[in-house]
Design a protein around this nucleic acid. Structure first.
Length: 264
DNA sequence: ATCTATTCCTGGCTGC
DNA sequence: TGCAGCCAGGAATAGA
């Protein structure tokens, strides 16, 4: 499932291919994935040149000539494939003056939208998890009620973390997922901040995690899943203390932690 | 304002 | 072997 490291990897693999290219034709095959009218969106995209490709949290932002912004969110199973043959799950195809980009998404939780700026839902998010400073992180945390795990998943609090990296960060910091966010205390807040930075940077370096079927734009799987300490490892021994990893459900999300290393 | 539950989707897995 | 039923979860939405 694409979170910050996976989206970052997709952007890095796709950006060099896209920069400076012109969109010849865009085709959309899913009314769910595309926000807006397919024919009108395709017409607006025609002959636009790609000026920038960047990541905004888990969003892929493609800046086009004429002041247009194409925003892609991969949802759960979305993926961008460079020069791939469109398969049964291709929801959009962008033919360029050189090469083509296929948006693939079996479950159709992803979204593609075209506008003159970042869509509101992307613009109103919290600071990027890899760009936020330690002091800002601590200040934002101090005012929040509720449990720490759901807060880390809240993109309005911090953008980029998803279920895998929230669990891995909490394990690294030794914090229970149901710990009260506001009552963590300065030492644990610093540990959590450092853990998030460490886990995300290592995951980006590994090309992300491939747990279901995530691959980058060249079809390459990431390798960070072999370094998951708790995510998807319920019942397996904790790599730190050997206690079996526990799986609970927090706000409808599978949550993995070590009951000994992460005390309530 | 902030937090929580529900809903959308379908491939893959489990168990009968 | 076949198939019904369940599970995964990012984020919009509605409700508390």
């Amino acid at each position: 499932m694409p979170e910050l490291p996976e989206v970052e990897t997709v952007v890095r693999t796709v950006a060099p291919r896209l920069l400076g290219r012109e969109i010849r034709r865009a085709r959309f095959y899913s009314r769910l994935v595309l926000r807006g009218d397919a024919a009108r969106t395709a017409a607006r995209l025609r002959s636009r040149r790609i000026q920038a490709v960047r990541r905004h949290g888990k969003f892929i932002v493609i800046e086009l000539s004429g002041g247009l912004t194409l925003t892609i969110h991969l949802g759960m199973t979305g993926g961008l494939l460079w020069n791939a043959e469109p398969g049964p799950h291709a929801r959009a195809v962008f033919d360029l003056d050189s090469g083509c980009l296929v948006y693939n998404d079996p479950r159709q939780f992803g979204r593609i939208e075209l506008g003159t700026s970042l869509p509101e839902r992307a613009a109103r998010l919290g600071p990027d998890a890899l760009a936020v400073g330690a002091d800002e992180f601590a200040a934002r945390l101090a005012t929040r009620k509720g449990h720490i795990k759901p807060l880390l998943l809240n993109q309005a609090f911090l953008r980029g973390l998803g279920n895998i990296y929230a669990d891995e960060s909490l394990f690294d910091a030794g914090i229970h997922p149901l710990a009260s966010a506001a009552r963590l205390g300065p030492a644990r807040v610093r540990r959590l901040y450092a853990a998030i930075q460490k886990v995300l940077r290592a995951a980006v370096e590994a090309g992300g995690s491939s747990v279901s079927d995530y691959v980058d734009a060249d079809g390459r799987a990431g390798s960070f899943q072999v370094r998951h300490h708790v995510y998807g490892r319920a019942g397996e021994p904790c790599p730190r203390c050997g206690t079996p990893i526990r799986r609970i459900v927090v706000n409808q999300r599978g949550t993995h932690y070590c009951p000994r290393c992460q005390r309530a």
